[in-house]
């Protein structure tokens, strides 16, 4: 049987998260198809068609699919599901919103945030803020899965030549309506896809002081993240949050500045390749996971680090 991956996109560009979900699907024994549901999203279907190892792209183009509303996408996925053994989506906010609704309508369980494929019916997922890894076997005929992006290396974006096939549009459920979106504008790399992430915590002290973190990030070509404490205090927008209930990141280099290292924060970044911590409290738990720890006042050390990087 074949796996269906539901594409994450903004109607113009295929999100790299989709390539991680395809990577998970590729570890199963069957083929992989991709569903691109959106509005005026032909370009996305064409990008998806270039992903290597994909059989076909199912394209559902309609105005009521524009904003990935779960109430409208779930019946669409349901209408296609009988041909598939696995339904996968990246564990983005859209994916997490959609897949459980689909699973319930199919009367199957969902496996959330898988980080490894053991076999066609058995998967590993972190629970308890990543302090425990659980291996689950699904007893259902269709496996509904969300894929944690940090668990799978994205497949290449090009090299394939899948066919694009339009599928039947399901009616607008009329339950929800998109009103508006306030997206955080940034010229920096996207947090979950960045090679380097610089995050600030409560210790940064204020929204104004976050300019220090941003300066260091820009010097490293990094994305900016934050702990829950920094977001709750209003230093930065919510979408900066790294942790158990925010974003999971696993960059090559993660720099934690003024972050104590609560287990909820560690859950979102401890799979990073190299971790640097800068904190004035040498007892801070973040130092237990950091490869390189610098004990000191961030207001002195961060500007000094920026200066040292310029050399």
């Amino acid at each position: 049987m074949t796996a269906l991956v539901i594409a994450e996109h903004n109607n113009q560009t295929l999100n790299v998260a989709t390539l991680c979900a395809v990577a998970a699907a590729a570890e199963l024994s069957g083929g992989v198809d991709i569903l691109v549901a959106g509005h005026q999203c032909q370009a996305v279907a064409e990008q998806a068609a270039q992903v290597p190892g994909v059989g076909k792209i199912l394209l559902a183009d309609a105005a009521h699919y524009a904003h990935a509303l779960a109430e409208n996408l779930a019946p669409l996925v349901l209408s296609l599901s009988s041909a598939y053994s696995h339904l996968l989506v990246a564990a983005t906010s859209n994916g997490k919103n959609l897949m459980p609704r689909v699973a319930a309508m199919l009367d199957v369980a969902q496996l959330s945030d898988i980080i490894a494929v053991v076999s066609d019916d058995t998967f590993v997922r972190p629970i308890y803020a990543g302090n425990v890894l659980a291996t689950f076997q699904s007893l259902d005929a269709i496996k509904a899965i969300t894929v944690r992006m940090t668990g799978f290396d994205a497949v290449p974006a090009t090299g394939g030549a899948a066919t694009i096939e339009a599928v039947a549009i399901q009616a607008d459920a009329g339950l929800s309506q998109f009103v508006s979106e306030e997206l955080t504008k940034s010229s920096r790399p996207e947090l979950t896809a960045a090679d380097i992430v610089v995050s600030g915590g409560r210790g940064v002290g204020s929204a104004e002081n976050f300019a220090l973190i941003e300066r260091l990030a820009d010097q490293l070509g990094a994305a900016v993240g934050a702990s829950r404490a920094a977001v709750d205090a209003g230093f930065v927008p919510n979408d900066y949050q790294v942790g158990q209930t925010g974003k999971c990141v696993a960059p090559t280099l993660y720099v934690a500045v003024g972050i104590s290292g609560a287990i909820q924060h560690l859950a979102g970044m401890k799979d990073s390749k190299v971790i640097v911590a800068i904190n004035k409290d040498e007892e801070a738990p973040i130092f237990q996971v950091a490869d390189y720890g610098l004990v000191g006042d961030l207001f002195k050390e961060v500007p000094a680090l920026c200066a040292a990087l310029e050399k």
């Binding site: 890894l133 007893l139 237990q288 390189y292 720890g293 610098l294």
Partner: peptide
């Protein structure tokens, strides 16, 4: 239950590294 728990394990522990003296 539709999901059978096969096993649980501890994630690979991250070993704390070194403290550096300064930014250089």
């Amino acid at each position: 239950p539709r999901l059978k728990l096969v096993k649980v394990s501890e994630p690979p522990a991250r070993v704390g590294g070194v403290k550096v003296a300064d930014v250089e």
